[in-house]
């Protein structure tokens, strides 16, 4: 479907529009990929889709706004240029969010080890309600701009024109994806894969499953926070983090399913495919017969079509069914 649109798009319209659809799709896809990565890492360790992911992303973005614009900590203490101060504060806020993830796992998820997965999913819905409400109280009446250094600057090269923040989104995503890929080859990463495969067997091998859970939730929360940042800056949402930010993560669901729930490369590919599909639909599928807001459901349509052909997504592991 995407290919068809691509071909048609290239044929009948200007280069600028086409390039615009690609750049927008890539930056949107990068955010989806970050969110999807978080989902997948949590899923691989705990076999659960965290419905609290969006709330954690919003909390992370809020913490960035709070650390960078209100406290100016720890960036302000270090001094240096403004962009560096902001970056240090933002990194610190992301780490703080990872700690929140750690705490959530310890308090609410750990006691559920061995319980039916849908009961755990339900616990994450409870977490979502609690975190979202508290975050919205922090955010209060008005949206909170993140105070980021990207500004409204645009980087232009030939037909390509991208906001600095969009370039940063793509670069940070690539770096994080590489880091995660490396992580899965490290000792803890291998332990996580073992845990995902079989919790009991992993325990028997001396792997602390509890610790793996904690690490997975911390990484997931940190990734959510990074996605939260990039979904709350110019041009996507210059006004910053608001009550809407928490719902952004639901838009990444098609990405994780498309790629396969338990596949890290799948999450990345799924994120970019969905981002591009949505972007192209937004630019080209404007015929009124589709109805208002059609581009918003294109990701779900793409997801359903793919699932009919490949029931476990593009890269997901097929569940071996035994009697």
């Amino acid at each position: 479907m995407s290919l068809l649109i691509l071909a048609q798009a290239a044929a009948d319209s200007g280069v600028d529009k086409f390039v615009g659809a690609i750049t927008n799709g890539l930056s949107l896809g990068a955010i989806y990929a970050l969110l999807a990565l978080g989902f997948v890492i949590i899923f691989k360790a705990t076999q659960v889709i965290s419905f609290a992911h969006g709330a954690v992303a919003a909390l992370g973005a809020y913490l960035v706004a709070y650390f960078a614009t209100v406290l100016n900590f720890p960036g302000g203490a270090l001094g240096g240029p403004a962009w560096l101060q902001w970056t240090v504060s933002a990194v610190f806020a992301v780490l703080a969010t990872a700690v929140v993830g750690l705490v959530l796992e310890r308090v609410a998820i750990r006691p559920m080890i061995g319980e039916p997965i849908f009961s755990i999913a339900m616990v994450t819905i409870g977490l979502d309600i609690v975190i979202r409400t508290i975050t919205n109280d922090f955010i209060s009446t008005d949206p909170r701009p993140l105070g980021d250094p990207f500004g409204t600057n645009i980087w232009e090269a030939g037909p390509i024109s991208m906001a600095y923040s969009e370039v940063a989104t793509i670069i940070v995503t690539i770096v994080l994806v590489l880091a995660i890929a490396w992580f899965f080859r490290s000792r803890i990463g291998v332990a996580m894969r073992a845990t995902a495969f079989d919790q009991e067997a992993a325990m028997a091998q001396g792997i602390s499953v509890g610790r793996i859970f904690a690490i997975a939730w911390a990484i997931g929360a940190g990734l959510a926070a990074v996605a939260g940042i990039f979904s709350s800056v110019f041009p996507r949402a210059s006004q910053g983090v608001s009550a809407e930010t928490a719902f952004f993560a639901f838009r990444a669901f098609p990405a994780i399913i498309l790629g396969g729930l338990d596949s890290v490369p799948g999450a990345v590919v799924g994120g970019f495919v969905i981002g591009l599909a949505e972007s192209f639909a937004g630019k080209y599928m404007t015929w009124s017969g589709f109805g208002v807001g059609f581009s918003g459901i294109v990701p779900y349509l793409v997801m359903m079509l793919v699932l009919l052909v490949r029931p476990y997504g593009l890269f997901g592991t097929e569940e071996i069914r035994r009697v």
């Binding site: 949206p143 996507r236 949402a237």
Partner: peptide
Amino acid sequence: NATFFGEVYGGAIASG
């Protein structure tokens, strides 16, 4: 509202 106005307006000025 302010959130969605910010998104539309930001998107528009991004393309000059």
